[in-house]
Amino acid sequence: MEKIYILCVEDQREVLHAILQDLEPLADSFILEGCESALEAEELMDEVDSRGDLIGLLICDHVMPDKSGVDFLIEVNRDGRFLHTKKLLLTGLATHQDTINAINQANIDRYIEKPWAAEELVLRARQLLTLFILDKGLPYEKFLPILDTDILFERIRKS
C-alpha cells in the first residue's frame, strides 16, 4: 500500500517545527515531512514519487531564499506527477501579485495567513487530504477517522 505524505516547506527551522508539531494529529495516517527550501522539497518529492508513494498535501511558505514558495508551487502545478497533490500556501508576506500568481498559475487550494491557528491548519489539511484521497480513487476506509466527513459524504452521494 502506498504511503501518503504531507510535506511542509518553510525556511525558518522553528516555524517548520511548529507546523509539524501542529499537524501531529495527522501523523498516524500520513507521513509528515519537512523541508527547509524548495530545492530540498523538489528532491524529496522526486524520491517519494519514484518509490511509488504519494504527496497528498504540500504546505508551503512564500518568502524563502533561492526559490519563492509561489514559484515552487507553480512548478509543482505543471508537473504531471503531482496532478492531484493539494497545495496550501501558508505565509504572512505575499504581495498582491504573488497572491494572484498563486491562484492563477499555481492553482493553490488554500491560503492561510501567518500567524496561523493550529485547529484551522489541521482542519484545512484534513479537508484537502480528503479531497486528495477521493480524487486519487484510493480506498478511504482506513482513513475514515481523520477524513472530513462532510466532504466525504458529499462526494459519495454524488458519485
Binding site: 527551522r13 522553528e14 523541508c35 527547509e36 530540498e40
Partner: peptide
C-alpha cells in the same frame, strides 16, 4: 540547541 537539526539531516 533549539531546533538545530536541518530538515535533510532529520530525514
Amino acid at each position: 540547541e533549539g531546533q538545530a537539526i536541518s530538515s535533510s539531516e532529520i530525514r
